[in-house]
Simulated assay, not measured.
Amino acid sequence: MFSFLDMVNHYLGYFNINVTLKSRIYTVLGFFGDVYLFYISFRFLQNQMFSKGVPILLVAIILLYFTICNFFYYFTKKQPWFDISPKIAKLLHIQEHPRETQVQSKMGTTVIADERNVPANGLFDDQHLLPAKIEVSPMQQANIDRLVAQMERQQLFRADYNGMSDRKIYELLKVNSKPIYAIGKGVLLPYFEMQKQGSSLMVYCGLNQAEIYPVGEIKRIGLQSIRSLDLSQVKLYLASVTLVGGPYKQIGRAGVIEAPQDYKLRAMVAYKKL
């Protein structure tokens, strides 16, 4: 049962689905997983294996509580009276932030509300976008690092953890253990294009069209490898290339520590059936 739920969760990550819809799917799947936990616990109790049945039953009850809260949150506009989330948020000093996007002129960590960061290649329908896996060679990684240095000199982004102090970063890491990157969630590259070279799809990026470098090869789009795609039946467009990764901070033994990491690329490809 849990292998099935994990498989569904894995494959949902390949699709560009609305966050609310994806959360509803996870809530429904979580409900079935919780039902399975109740089934296991009752079977243990029927066989008088209380040391195993009681803990699983308690976990199932706790998960059922959160599942019910999620049903209220994602399927209705009401908040249940028994929801303790506001109290937990108040206890941990977590404030709800308005939806923010990166400033288009800087494409960095400065954020403002309700403004879209439009890619250089324009906007595509979300229903026709798929994530692409890019394979990068050592030489192409050097090109990425060179482009990052050029963008920093042009002040297209700031790798300053959005101006947060180590104390603020430490508080965020206590709530969410995921590393916090210096450039934030990602920086849209100024210019990018995709070129077909033989049977390969190469990605080129740069500050502008006159100065571009090969930065990787697209190996997979969605669930399909490039070799399995019939390019005579579908037209592909490179919709966006985002710079991610780089230096990040995490909690160490003596507080917040910074660790190095190579910058990576996250790409989205639009398709059109011919």
Rank of each mutant, 00 (worst) to 15 (best):
K196N: 03
T101K: 07
K219S: 15
S85C: 00
F124Q: 12
T27Q: 01
N176A: 10
P179R: 04
F44K: 04
E171C: 00
Y14G: 00
N47Y: 04
A210Y: 11
Q95L: 07
Q261C: 08
L129Y: 10
M7F: 15
S228H: 09
L92Y: 14
P247Y: 01
L21D: 04
P190I: 10
V244T: 15
K90E: 11
Y26W: 06
L5M: 08
Q140C: 11
L58F: 14
P214H: 04
V28L: 14
I134A: 04
A159Y: 05
V35A: 13
N143Y: 10
I180Y: 13
N208R: 01
K133R: 13
R266S: 14
I180N: 02
S85E: 05
T20Y: 01
M107S: 11
P98R: 07
K78D: 04
K235L: 06
L201I: 12
Y73M: 07
V148K: 06
H97G: 01
M49W: 01
Y204K: 11
G30N: 14
L201C: 04
S228R: 12
V28A: 15
A259L: 15
A60P: 12
G184N: 03
L231A: 01
L123Q: 15
G245A: 08
Q250W: 00
Y39D: 05
N9P: 00
V234F: 08
